[in-house]
């Protein structure tokens, strides 16, 4: 039976200053509907690359392998088509858009996705009401909707803004790339609650993190360890606790 997300033998490389660098080396990963999966792994193991490849960033060249998302060939789709199909990536380093008002940006995105999904677009009043409520739930200062996208935002504000976008775009599959990094405990809880509110039998998430702390609030179904461009080990939630205490070294040497 076809899985919700099925990554098979995924290889990808990047052209860095004229040098081709292989980053993903045969990633296999299945995520069933309704589950939260976690990827952990040392720096440079390819976690962020995997998230970018899934979201459709063009700098990465997929050399072989496939990704099926709800039965569709994800790799053949444009980034905006992937978003319309229900994929959302919370960026590790959210991009600043000087000159673009945050509320306008959010409304443009929400309506683009609604249009593509055959839903009615929201007018300015209806949208603003929705956005204000969502921002309040995420303990965001009201003026963050009026400012330019991520410009002058603190690290924590940028991450909250990512979760706000996720909340408004209502994805069926969310990738969170180190959304917890640099957050204090309160912000961490806000981010986790943002994901937990979306949890449903039809919603799955892939969470990239280095820390057990987030997983205390965000009880995962499955933990995967990534190293040197592939998944070397998978297990239950206890695996994250074990890594938190013992580090990666043991697992890396066992896999070698």
């Amino acid at each position: 039976m076809s899985q919700f997300l099925e990554i098979s033998g995924l290889n990808a490389r990047i052209d860095a200053d004229g040098q081709e660098k292989q980053i993903l080396r045969g990633v296999d990963l299945s995520i069933p509907p309704g589950e939260v999966h976690v990827i952990m792994g040392p720096n440079g193991s390819g976690k962020s690359t995997l998230s970018y490849v899934l979201a459709g960033r063009e700098d990465y060249e997929v050399t072989s392998g496939s990704v099926l998302f709800q039965g569709q060939d994800l790799l053949a789709m444009e980034p905006e088509e992937r978003a319309a199909a229900g994929l959302f990536l919370a960026f590790q380093s959210p991009v600043e858009l000087p000159g673009v008002n945050n509320a306008n940006f959010l409304r443009t995105a929400v309506n683009a996705v609604r249009r593509a999904r055959g839903q009615e677009e929201l007018d300015a009043v209806a949208f603003l009401k929705l956005a204000r409520e969502a921002a309040k739930t995420l303990s965001m200062a009201p003026d963050m909707l009026k400012r330019n996208v991520n410009v002058g935002f603190s690290g924590g504000e940028k991450k909250r803004n990512e979760v706000l976008q996720m909340t408004l775009l209502q994805p069926t599959f969310a990738i969170l790339d180190e959304t917890d990094s640099g957050l204090d405990v309160d912000a961490l809880r806000v981010v986790a609650e943002g994901v937990n509110r979306l949890r449903a039998p039809t919603f799955s998430a892939l969470v990239i993190t280095h820390h057990q702390k987030l997983l205390d609030y965000l009880v995962p179904d499955r933990i995967h360890v990534m190293a040197k461009g592939r998944i070397i080990l998978s297990g239950g939630p206890e695996l994250a606790r074990q890594i938190d205490q013992e580090g990666y070294t043991k697992f890396l040497s066992e896999a070698a």
Binding site: G56, E80, A84, L97, F105, A112
Partner: peptide, 9 residues
């Protein structure tokens, strides 16, 4: 890419 990843054509 950031804009497109949010569904904006």
């Amino acid at each position: 890419f950031y804009l497109r990843s949010r569904g904006v054509p």
